[in-house]
Design a protein around this nucleic acid. Structure first.
Length: 864
RNA sequence: GCCGGAGUGGUGAAAUUGGUAUACACGAGGGAUUCAAAAUCCCUUGCACGAAAGUGCGUGCCGGUUCGAGUCCGGCCUCCGGUACCA
């Protein structure tokens, strides 16, 4: 054994050992309990970033721990390889997206291997390969035949200069990021998958997902947004098609003082003919992007159409407006407005001087004023000013008014969802082609199985604005699979969320000549899924949805894809900048900055080493290229080794918190591993001794104390491993180490045994986090077992026994002292000891004791 | 705007179910070793007052429940994630 800890050398040796022994390749074994540990697959952006390192270390720690608990562990890895960044890189570097992507994958695979993650690389999935995407094309054609996929018009961001569709991210302040042109809304035909047909199941099954956090489940519930309400037709005063609206507040129907329709509602278009003011307004509504943030943030405005509707309950005539916040694509494209009892309607009514009518009031005598603010309560209310429907609570009003509206034949009870069908069309090149042929005679025809996959050409020149498959008439041209006459291929590609909706299942069946095969039933569902909290709703909802689609196609047999979920927090770093009038804001890399601290270590200022000028610190912020504050995992691994990086990322905070990167603390993690190495080096002859003294050992006091520490700490480690709180597992291991560092076994066999036991436990519990150093140290232990398959250590209950314990003593809730009592002391004995204690007695004085509260083995509170 | 989180020393954080707030680290200060440096080791370290014993204060802010609140309840503030074409 080398005296010096040299991570670069030992990590290479250990990784070679794993490679030669195929240590992480697994097969289905029905006799063993399986554990499928899945981390979200990365987008191959070119370099591993700290978020990946953190995510994958968490998964690796879980996987290695489960293996030591005896499970047959599958931990796969792959590449979410289609997507927008490859197209941007292609334009910048003039290389085809495929080439850029494959090079990135090569590089990043090497980086992952250097981290020592226990992946079964024989199962690697690359989503841009036809072997993978052909099966989602195949599956999509099944969905088409079942009516679960369909085509309809939908709105996109349109850049009128580049003549292209923009992603929401590419719209900055309402303008195209490249052209700078004002973005417009444009309606084009798009493919959708009917996720709303599964809305109720997606909602209800959340209740069964005990292994998912409440915050994620709540977000998904709110995203689905099931609401029960009433659909009502409002007749127009001058005839014509009635306006259909949906409301969850039928109890406020008498308070409707106006209505509003979307800019592209037929009624608005009609009114615009011959009215330039309205026509101009509709034109204005076309400007700007389609994201919800933008729509909600913009100023709400509108114009009256000069048309009246009739309130079906009161018979009142109310004006119909066109408003920019009503959207044609969502719901019916028209709303009823109740400014007295809806905040948005109230604001709109006030800015346009529209009437506000109160129709509900508090059931008690409380005064409210709907003229100053909308009153939106549902509980403890009573309808007022509502004709024969006055004096009712919410539920009664809802039911009676719904009955009435249904009896009149102008509406019906209706369940509505906020969730919209999943738009999967993208007008981009670097994605999976949607397998449909457009035929003049037969309509949209799914590509038959024997013509799949529809291959995406990879050897293309890509200039950015136009997708090469849209630009290439040769590629588009085909024969209709039904009538064999000339027809055109669909040139849209899938949303990349489609690929990431089923990759976890494909890992189970490498090389299968079908979408999946029976091996999937052994591994699924995923036992633990780990990924960023940013995926809480969209990806994780599509992932659940696709699993149910596969179940209903008879391809998988479970209802949900993952039983447990862990969402890790973001990785942050400090960033520094300077502002100047000429060049705007410049971001200075942290390693070019010297931070000045006060005598307590608090940052007071920061200086750019380059020229000695002052820079501004931002505090903790997300790592990003634009802020120049990314920490490259490669640099860290080169400097400290993979184990140190793994140790730091697990130690710095619990998995679900944000993680603040700190170079000094990373060095501290290396220091710990060096001390661990030194400890084992110092005791190596003792450690390699035979382990034949398993009984009849007499412990001296110091050894008994040391063993009690080891086993109480192990107890905490076990608890924290099961709740995935790895930072405290490491803290406890450090405590164990600190207790051990002072212990000298000498020649005493019992003391030697105790030290061997303690170090054995320490190496085992640290091995999931720092597997390379653990492997090297383990070789000295003469245990005859492979560390990867060594059993997780068990607590020796006998070692925990003590005869007395310390009790904190409070007087009126304030800590005043401590006493030591026998473990089995009763309240009377404790009371005697408390009163006998001089320091505590001072605080009690002559006062009468009102209460004497004892929390066994913890504390006493004397209330005077 | 809406939905979901988070806030504890100089810093990252710990505190099992309402029971001794600050474990474990980092940083800082002091010391040892060294020709010197690196590395390593030892001690101190929540804040205020005090020579000390000690006393008071202290978990974003305001209020409440309780013998006892970082933890539970009500109301705010700030920051972070998502918001349907970034992944």
């Amino acid at each position: 054994m080398d005296e010096r800890y040299d991570p670069q050398v030992i990590e290479q040796q250990v990784q070679d050992y794993w490679l030669q022994n195929h240590s992480f390749e697994v097969t289905e074994d029905p006799t063993r309990e399986k554990f499928y540990c899945l981390s979200m697959l990365p987008y191959p952006s070119g370099h591993l970033h700290m978020g990946h390192v953190r995510n994958y270390t968490i998964g690796d720690v879980m996987s290695r721990y489960q293996r030591m608990c005896g499970r047959n562990v599958l931990q796969p890895m792959g590449w979410d390889a289609f997507g927008l960044p490859a197209e941007n890189a292609a334009i910048q570097r003039k290389v085809p997206p495929s080439e850029w992507t494959y090079q990135n994958i090569e590089h990043m695979r090497g980086q992952l291997k250097r981290m020592g993650f226990a992946y079964d690389w024989t199962r690697e999935v690359t989503t841009c390969r036809p072997e993978y995407y052909q099966w989602e094309q195949w599956f999509f054609t099944r969905l088409l035949k079942k009516g679960l996929a369909y085509r309809k018009n939908a709105v996109v961001n349109w850049d009128p200069v580049d003549q292209t569709v923009l992603a929401n991210e590419q719209v900055v302040d309402g303008k195209g990021w490249r052209s700078g042109a004002q973005v417009e809304k444009r309606e084009i035909p798009q493919w959708f998958i009917r996720i709303t047909a599964y809305a109720d199941e997606l909602l209800e099954e959340l209740d069964q997902l005990d292994g998912w956090s409440d915050s994620v489940k709540t977000m998904q519930r709110n995203w689905i947004g099931r609401s029960v309400g009433l659909e009502v037709d409002f007749a127009l005063a001058d005839g014509g098609d009635p306006l259909r609206i949906f409301t969850t507040r039928p109890d406020t129907l008498f308070g409707v003082t106006f209505m509003a329709v979307a800019a592209d509602h037929p009624l608005a278009r009609e009114a615009a003919e011959g009215n330039t003011a309205i026509a101009d307004f509709l034109e204005q509504c076309r400007a700007g992007g389609i994201s919800e943030v933008d729509l909600e943030a913009m100023e709400k405005n509108g114009l009256p159409l000069g048309v009246n509707a009739v309130n079906p309950l009161s018979g009142e005539h109310i004006p119909v407006w066109v408003a920019n916040f009503v959207l044609m694509g969502y719901g019916t494209g028209a709303i009823m407005a109740v400014p007295g009892h809806d905040e948005r309607d109230h604001a709109f009514a006030q800015s346009y001087g529209l009437p506000i009518q109160q129709v509900i009031a508090p059931a008690d005598d409380r005064e409210i004023d709907v003229m100053t603010a909308a009153w939106v309560d549902k509980q403890n209310i009573m309808t007022v000013n509502s004709g024969t429907f006055s004096g009712l609570d919410y539920d009664t009003a809802f039911e009676r008014i719904a009955d009435h509206v249904e009896a009149l034949g102008i509406g019906r009870r209706q369940v509505n969802y906020r969730l919209r069908d999943w738009g999967v069309s993208r007008q981009r090149y670097w994605g999976c082609p949607i397998p449909v042929v457009h035929c003049e005679h037969c309509g949209d025809v799914p590509v038959p199985d024997d013509q799949l996959p529809v291959l995406l050409p990879e050897d293309v020149t890509f200039m950015g604005v136009q997708s090469p498959i849209k630009a290439d008439p040769q590629w588009r041209q085909t024969a209709c699979p039904q009538c064999e006459r000339p027809a055109e291929r669909e040139t849209d590609t899938f949303d990349t969320f489609v690929e990431s909706s089923w990759y976890y299942a494909r890992y189970c069946t490498p090389g299968a000549d079908a979408m999946l095969d029976e091996r999937a039933d052994y591994w699924l569902p995923v036992d633990h899924y780990i990924g960023g909290i940013e995926h809480a709703v969209m990806h994780l909802l599509y992932f659940r949805f696709w699993h149910k689609l596969m179940r209903d196609a008879g391809i998988v047999s479970s209802d949900e894809p993952a039983t447990k979920l862990l969402c890790q927090g973001m990785v942050l770093a400090e960033a520094y900048y300077q502002d100047s009038t000429e060049s705007g804001r410049t971001w200075i890399p942290p390693d070019e900055v010297r931070v000045e601290r006060d005598d307590k270590g608090k940052t007071i200022s920061a200086v750019w080493l380059h020229d000695g000028t002052m820079v501004n610190p931002t505090g903790w912020t997300t790592m990003s290229k634009s802020k120049n504050n990314g920490v490259d995992p490669q640099d860290m691994v080169d400097r400290y080794g993979a184990d140190t990086v793994r140790l730091f990322t697990m130690f710095a905070s619990p998995p679900d918190h944000t993680l603040e990167w700190n170079d000094d603390a990373v060095a501290g993690s290396l220091r710990f591993l060096r001390r661990l190495w030194a400890l084992v080096y110092r005791h190596q002859s003792c450690l390699s001794g035979a382990n034949d003294l398993t009984h009849a050992l007499e412990w001296d006091d110091e050894t008994r104390e040391m063993r009690r520490l080891v086993h109480t700490v192990l107890q905490r480690i076990n608890r924290d491993m099961t709740r995935n709180q790895f930072n405290t597992v490491i803290a406890a291991s450090m405590e164990l180490f600190n207790g051990l560092d002072q212990f000298e076994p000498g020649e005493d066999p019992a003391r030697q045994f105790a030290l061997r036991e303690a170090i054995d436990i320490l190496i085992r519990v640290l091995s999931p986090v720092v597997p390379h150093i653990a492997h090297s140290l383990w070789q000295l232990m003469n245990s005859g077992v492979e560390l990867l398959d060594a059993s997780w250590p068990e607590v020796d209950i006998a070692a925990l026994q003590t005869s007395s314990c310390k009790l904190a003593v409070q007087v009126n809730g304030k800590l005043r002292g401590q006493i030591e009592v026998a473990m089995d002391a009763d309240e009377l004995q404790i009371r005697e000891q408390v009163l006998a204690n001089e320091k505590i007695g001072r605080h009690i004085g002559e006062s009468k004791i009102k209460r004497f509260i004892v929390v066994p083995q913890k504390l006493v509170n004397v209330v005077i």
